[in-house]
C-alpha cells in the first residue's frame, strides 16, 4: 500500500470514528449547536408557507451522475428531499421533485415513496413525482422550468449538481417572485447561485442539509466530524507551510504526494 493509500484509509477511519463518536456523544439531537444558515431556515419557513398556502415546494436534484464525485451533492440533495417531504407531509400538495439524471430520478422516487409511506401519505395521486425532466443539462433546466411554472410552486429548492444552466432555474424563480434556495458543489454554478438565488447555500453548506433539517443524530455528527477535520486540515496546512519556510521537508507532503 502506498503512503497515499494508507493516508486515505486513515482519513476514512478517522471520519468514521468521529461520526460515530459524535453521534454517541450528542444524545440530544434537538440541541443543535450549529451556526444558523439562512437558506435552511428559509426551507423550514417555506414548508410552513406551503402548508398554509396550499402550494407546493419544488425540489430539483440536479443532473449529477451517480458514479462520480458529483454523486455526493445529489445524495445530499436526496436527504434534503427526504426531510422536506417529511416536514411538508401536512401539505395539501406534497412537494414536487425533478431531476436531470436517471439514477437520481430513481433514487428520488424511492426516497419519495419510502418517505411517503413512512408518513403514510397513502394517496399516490398526491405523491410527489421525482420525475426525470430532461437528460442533458439544458434540457433538464428547460424541463424544470416547466415544472416551476405549471405547478403551484411556492418555493424552489435546488440542491444537487448543476452547471451554469442553474441560471435558468434561479431566474425562473425570481421571475415568479418565489424564493429560491439553491446549493451545488460545482463552483461556477455556485457563483451564479450566489448572485441570482434568493437564499444561496454556499459550498459545503449543501451537505449539511440533513443536520439542519433534522434528519437525525448522524447528520449532526457528520458536521461535527467535518468541523474537527476542518481544523486538522488547517493545522496540517499551516504546520507544513511553517516547516516549508524553515526548509524542512515533511512527512505530510510525502503522504499526500502520491495522489498529486
Amino acid at each position: 500500500m502506498s503512503a497515499t493509500g494508507f493516508t486515505g484509509i486513515v482519513v476514512i477511519v478517522l471520519f468514521l470514528g468521529l461520526m460515530i463518536f459524535f453521534s454517541i456523544i450528542n444524545q440530544e439531537p434537538k440541541q443543535k449547536n450549529i451556526r444558523p444558515i439562512q437558506a435552511y431556515n428559509k426551507i423550514n419557513q417555506e414548508i410552513n408557507v406551503a402548508v398554509e398556502d396550499g402550494t407546493q415546494l419544488h425540489i430539483s436534484l440536479g443532473r449529477g451522475g451517480i458514479t462520480g464525485p458529483e454523486s455526493a451533492s445529489a445524495l445530499a440533495g436526496l436527504s434534503i428531499l427526504k426531510q422536506v417531504i417529511e416536514k411538508s407531509s401536512v401539505c395539501d400538495y406534497p412537494p414536487v421533485a425533478s431531476t436531470g439524471n436517471a439514477v437520481i430520478s430513481i433514487l428520488a422516487q424511492d426516497t419519495i415513496q419510502g418517505t411517503s409511506k413512512a408518513i403514510s401519505i397513502a394517496d399516490k395521486g398526491k405523491n410527489p413525482s421525482g420525475e426525470l425532466v430532461g437528460v442533458t443539462p439544458f434540457s433538464y433546466a428547460a424541463g424544470t422550468l416547466t415544472t416551476i411554472r405549471d405547478n403551484n410552486v411556492s418555493a424552489n429548492i435546488h440542491t444537487g449538481w448543476f452547471g451554469s444552466e442553474i441560471t435558468w432555474l434561479t431566474t425562473a424563480g425570481e421571475r415568479q417572485s418565489t424564493p429560491t434556495i439553491a446549493g451545488t458543489a460545482q463552483l461556477p454554478a455556485q457563483a451564479v447561485i450566489y448572485a441570482s438565488a434568493s437564499d444561496p447555500l454556499i459550498g459545503e453548506e449543501l451537505y449539511a442539509g440533513g443536520a439542519y433539517l433534522g434528519a437525525g443524530k448522524i447528520h449532526l455528527a457528520s458536521i461535527s466530524a467535518q468541523d474537527v477535520f476542518r481544523w486538522i486540515i488547517i493545522f496540517v496546512i499551516l504546520g507544513s507551510v511553517l516547516l516549508k519556510i524553515l526548509g524542512i521537508d515533511i512527512f505530510v507532503e510525502n503522504s499526500l504526494a502520491g495522489s498529486m
Partner: peptide
C-alpha cells in the same frame, strides 16, 4: 477552501451511505 470544504461534505455524505 471551497473545494476542501466540499470534499469534507462529500466524504461524510458518502460515509453515511457506506454506514
Amino acid at each position: 477552501g471551497l473545494l476542501l470544504g466540499i470534499a469534507l461534505g462529500t466524504i461524510t455524505t458518502g460515509i453515511r451511505i457506506l454506514m
